[in-house]
Design a protein around this nucleic acid. Structure first.
Length: 755
DNA sequence: CTCCTTTGTCTTTTT
DNA sequence: GACAAAGGAG
C-alpha cells in the first residue's frame, strides 16, 4: 500500500489498524482521505471487507467513499458496509425487527407525516389545536428519543409541568398509532435498533462479529442514541476509529452531542488520539479569517489550523443596500468568472434562496438548488409513494388517509371519519373495511366508491413490479386528469414530469430482478425514504450551487459566497434566544461556511430585506467584526438614514428591532416609521446584545414606577404612565408620550426609567 | 361534498 | 408575502 502521499500524522492514523482511535481533523485537513486510505489499508492487511463498517453523514458521502476505496485498491469494496446511521439501522431492522414485535414491511414516515399524525392526536385528545402546535410537541418527543427516553420513562421523569404532561400524553398516543400503522419515523430507526440490540444479545453478537472494524465520520455530530448503538457494536472488539472536529459541530438541534467527541478518551479505554492541523484546502487569508472567528468560542480544545498554501486574495465582506442588490451584484460577479461548477452560494436558512434564484433566472445562469422544496416532498411524488405504501402495507392508515380521496372521488371528510372510528373500534386497519363499507354506516353510494378504491389497490398489487405499479397509478386512476381540472395544464405537465422521474428511479430497482414485486417495492420505498437533498448533488454539470451552510458540510468550492451575513439572520434570531450556547453553534456554522472555500471567499449582507411582507433592516453580523484582521476587507453600504419600526410582540422579542427603510415604509401601514439617527441604531444594537436578559426576563413583584409617574424611554423619550396592567408573565404599561402620543409597551422590553 | 374566500402563521438548520 | 387551514356558500 503506497502511503507516500500522506503526511506523517495522516500516515499514523492510517497505519493504526486496531483499538480505539480518535482523529481530530480540522477543516480541510484531509479527513476523507484518511478514512478511505485507512479502509484500503485494513483490506490490504487481509481484513475481510464484510467485517468493515464505515458510517458517514450522508448517502452521497457513503457512495463517494466506496468509489474512492475502489479506486485505491483497483477492486470492489462492495462488501464493505459504508452507509449512514439511518440506512444501517434500516437495514438491520428489516432483517430482525420482528424480534421486537413489529412487522417486517414497515414504512418510514417523514416529518410532514409526523406532523399530520400529531395534529390529529392533539384534536382527538381534546386539546385546542390553536394553542397546542404540533411542532414543539414533536420536537420535544424527538429530543426524548435522541436520548433514548421512551414514553413510559418520559411520563415518569420528564412530565413535570403542563407542557411536558401534554407531551407525555401525545408521545404515548403517537407511538401507539405508529405501531398499529406499522410505520417508523426517522428517530425510531435509531431507537428501535438500540432496543433490538439491548433485548437480543444473540442479534447484537451477530453484528459485533460482523462489524469487527468500525469507522465513523463527522463524529462531532452524533447524538446520544447513535453513540449507544456504536458502543453496543464496538464493545466486543473495540476497533473503533472516529473522525471529527468539535469546531464543526452544527447539528445540536438534532440532538448531536459534542460531548461524544470530547470524551472519547474516557468512553473508550486506551484510546489513541491523532490531530490533523495542516489544512490543504484554503488560502492563508481564508484560514486566518476563519480561525479568528472560531477562536471566540470558549471551552473548545485549542487548535490552530495552518497551511502551506499561498496567502491568496483578501477575504471580502460587503454590505449592500437591499437583498435584491446583494443578489444582483453577486450574480454579476459570478457571471463574469463563469466558473459556475466551482462556485457555491451559501446561506443560513432556505428562505434566503429566493432572491438569489430570481437573480439567477434573470441573469440566465444555470443553478442547482439543494434543499428547498425537495423532490420527495412534492405533493404528487408523496401521493404516488403513499399509493405504493398502501400496496405494501395495508395497515398503513396514514398513507391511506392521504390518498383515499386523491384524486377526488367523492369520499368526503365525514365518511372518512366514520371509517376511521370503525377501524379503531374493530381494531383493524381502515383498508380492510373498504371492501364492505356499508357495514360502517356510510351511505350506499359512498360505500361503492370505497369499494372502487379498494379494487384500485388490489389491481395495482397484481402488477409485476414497482415500475408498472407506478405506471398504473399515473395513468389509470385519473390522477393527472384531476390535477389538470384543478390547476390547469401547466401544473399537469410539471407533475407528470416529476412522476416520470420517480418512475425512472423505480426502474433502477427492477432491473436486477429475480425477486418478487413486493420485495422490490419494499426496497424502493425504504431507499426513497432516506435520501437527503445533498445526495442528489451531481458536481459534474456546470451549474452554480445554492444551498444552506448545513448542506455544505464536507464539501469544498474554489469560490464561496456567504450571503445574508446579518444579525438575526446569521446568527439567526432563534439561536440568539438561546444565549451563548446558541451563538457558539452559529459561530461554528460560520466557521464551516468560511472553510468551504479554496481560493475566494466573499461574505455579504444587506441593509434591508423583505421579511414577512414588510421590508426589515439589518446590521452586519457580529462575526464580521470577529473576522476582521490582515487580509480581510470590509465595505459598508452608504446609507444616509436608517429607519426602524418598533414591533413589540410578546412572544417574539427578537422582532423588536426590525428595521424598515424609507423606500418601503409605505408598505408597513400598520406601524409608524421613525427617522432615527446613528446613535439610536447604535443603542438598538447594544440593546440587541442584551436579548438574553429579555428572554430570561423575570417579572418583578412591582414595577419601579407607578400610575401617574413620568418615565423615559430610549426611543420615545419622556411620557406619563397612564395605566399598568398585570398580564401574567409581564406588565402591560400604557404611556402617554410627549412626542408620539399614547402607546402600550411591555415593561420587560421597554425598560422605562422613572424621572 | 366541493369550491372559493378568509384567516392565521411563519423563518433556523435535517436524517 | 406565501402558504396552509378553517369557514362559508352553493
Amino acid at each position: 500500500m503506497d502511503l507516500s502521499v500522506l503526511n506523517d500524522k495522516q500516515k499514523e492514523a492510517v497505519e493504526c489498524l486496531s483499538g480505539p482511535l480518535l482523529v481530530v481533523a480540522g477543516a480541510g485537513s484531509g479527513k476523507t482521505r484518511v478514512i478511505t486510505y485507512r479502509i484500503a489499508n485494513l483490506l490490504a492487511h487481509g481484513i475481510k471487507p464484510y467485517n468493515i463498517l464505515a458510517i458517514t453523514f450522508t448517502n452521497k458521502a457513503a457512495n463517494e467513499m466506496k468509489e474512492r476505496v475502489e479506486n485505491l485498491l483497483g477492486l470492489g469494496a462492495s462488501d464493505c458496509t459504508i452507509s449512514t446511521f439511518h440506512s444501517l439501522c434500516n437495514r438491520i431492522l428489516h432483517i430482525d425487527i420482528e424480534r421486537i414485535g413489529m412487522g417486517k414491511n414497515f414504512n418510514i414516515i417523514d416529518t410532514d407525516d409526523s406532523k399530520s399524525i400529531m395534529r390529529k392526536i392533539i384534536k382527538d385528545l381534546g386539546y385546542d389545536p390553536k394553542k397546542n402546535k404540533e411542532r414543539p410537541i414533536l420536537s420535544e418527543i424527538s429530543k426524548a428519543k435522541n436520548i433514548n427516553v421512551g414514553p413510559e420513562e418520559y411520563a415518569a421523569k420528564y412530565a413535570i409541568d403542563d407542557f411536558t404532561r401534554k407531551v407525555s400524553e401525545c408521545y404515548n398516543e403517537y407511538e401507539k398509532r405508529k405501531y398499529t400503522a406499522n410505520v417508523l419515523d426517522f428517530d425510531d430507526l435509531l431507537v428501535k435498533t438500540a432496543q433490538l440490540f439491548k433485548e437480543n444479545p444473540d442479534i447484537l453478537d451477530k453484528y459485533q462479529e460482523k462489524y469487527k472494524y468500525i469507522l465513523i465520520d463527522e463524529y462531532q455530530d452524533t447524538n446520544d442514541i447513535q453513540f449507544l448503538i456504536v458502543s453496543y457494536l464496538a464493545s466486543k472488539y473495540k476497533n473503533i476509529c472516529v473522525v471529527g472536529d468539535e469546531d464543526q459541530s452544527i447539528y445540536s438541534f438534532r440532538g448531536a452531542n459534542i460531548r461524544n467527541i470530547l470524551s472519547f478518551e474516557s468512553d473508550f479505554e486506551n484510546a489513541k488520539i491523532i490531530k490533523l492541523e495542516q489544512n490543504y484546502r484554503s488560502t492563508q487569508n481564508i484560514l486566518n479569517a476563519a480561525n479568528r472567528v472560531i477562536s471566540n468560542n470558549i471551552g473548545r480544545k485549542e487548535k490552530v489550523l495552518w497551511t502551506e498554501n499561498a496567502i491568496g486574495d483578501p477575504v471580502r465582506f460587503e454590505e449592500y443596500k437591499s437583498d435584491k442588490t446583494e443578489a444582483d451584484e453577486l450574480i454579476r460577479k459570478i457571471k463574469k468568472d463563469k466558473n459556475y461548477s466551482n462556485t457555491a452560494i451559501l446561506y443560513r436558512a432556505n428562505s434566503q434562496s429566493k432572491s438569489i434564484e430570481e437573480a439567477c433566472v434573470y441573469a440566465n445562469i444555470p443553478y442547482r438548488l439543494i434543499g428547498g422544496v425537495q423532490f420527495y416532498k412534492r405533493k404528487e411524488v408523496k401521493d404516488m409513494i403513499a399509493y405504493l405504501r398502501v400496496c405494501l402495507n395495508a395497515n398503513d392508515d396514514i398513507s391511506l388517509l392521504r390518498i383515499i380521496n386523491t384524486p377526488s372521488r367523492g369520499i368526503g371528510e365525514s365518511s372518512i371519519e366514520k371509517l376511521r372510528t370503525a377501524a379503531i373500534s374493530q381494531n383493524c386497519s381502515m383498508f380492510s373495511l373498504l371492501n364492505d363499507a356499508s357495514s360502517i354506516g356510510v351511505i350506499k353510494s359512498t360505500a361503492s366508491k370505497m369499494k372502487d378504491f379498494y379494487n384500485i389497490i388490489l389491481k395495482a398489487k397484481s402488477e409485476v413490479d414497482v415500475k408498472s405499479m407506478l405506471m398504473f397509478f399515473k395513468t389509470k386512476i385519473g390522477y393527472l386528469e384531476d390535477v389538470e381540472i384543478q390547476e390547469g395544464i401547466d401544473a399537469r405537465i410539471e407533475r407528470e414530469s416529476n412522476i416520470d422521474e420517480l418512475i425512472n428511479k423505480a426502474a433502477e430497482f427492477v432491473s436486477s430482478d429475480t425477486e418478487d414485486a413486493m420485495d422490490s417495492l419494499n426496497n424502493f420505498l425504504n431507499e426513497v425514504s432516506l435520501v437527503a437533498d445533498i445526495d442528489e448533488l451531481d458536481a459534474s454539470d456546470k451549474k452554480l450551487t445554492l444551498m444552506t451552510v448545513h448542506a455544505s458540510k464536507g464539501l469544498e468550492f474554489d469560490n464561496v459566497y456567504i450571503v445574508g451575513f446579518s444579525e438575526n439572520l446569521f446568527p439567526s434570531a432563534m439561536s440568539l434566544m438561546d444565549g451563548d450556547v446558541g451563538v457558539e453553534e452559529e459561530r461554528r456554522l460560520a466557521y464551516v461556511a468560511m472553510t468551504r472555500a479554496r481560493k475566494n471567499l466573499h461574505i455579504s449582507s444587506a441593509v434591508s430585506k423583505f421579511f414577512q411582507g414588510k421590508s426589515a433592516m439589518y446590521i452586519p453580523s457580529r462575526f464580521v467584526d470577529e473576522a476582521k484582521g490582515d487580509g480581510f476587507e470590509c465595505k459598508y453600504a452608504e446609507i444616509s438614514n436608517r429607519f426602524y419600526d418598533d414591533v413589540y410582540e410578546e412572544d417574539r422579542p427578537y422582532n423588536k428591532y426590525k428595521f424598515s427603510d424609507q423606500a418601503h415604509s409605505h408598505k408597513s401601514s400598520r406601524s409608524d416609521t421613525y427617522v432615527v439617527n446613528k446613535e439610536v441604531v447604535k443603542a438598538a444594537k447594544a440593546d440587541l446584545s442584551k436579548f438574553k436578559s429579555h428572554v430570561t426576563y423575570q417579572k418583578p413583584e412591582k414595577l419601579p414606577y407607578d400610575e401617574g409617574d413620568l418615565v423615559s424611554h430610549i426611543k420615545f423619550g419622556e411620557g406619563k404612565v397612564k395605566s399598568i396592567k398585570d398580564i401574567g408573565k409581564d406588565f402591560e404599561v400604557t404611556i402617554d408620550f410627549k412626542d408620539s402620543g399614547e402607546r402600550i409597551l411591555l415593561a420587560g422590553f421597554a425598560k422605562l426609567n422613572k424621572i
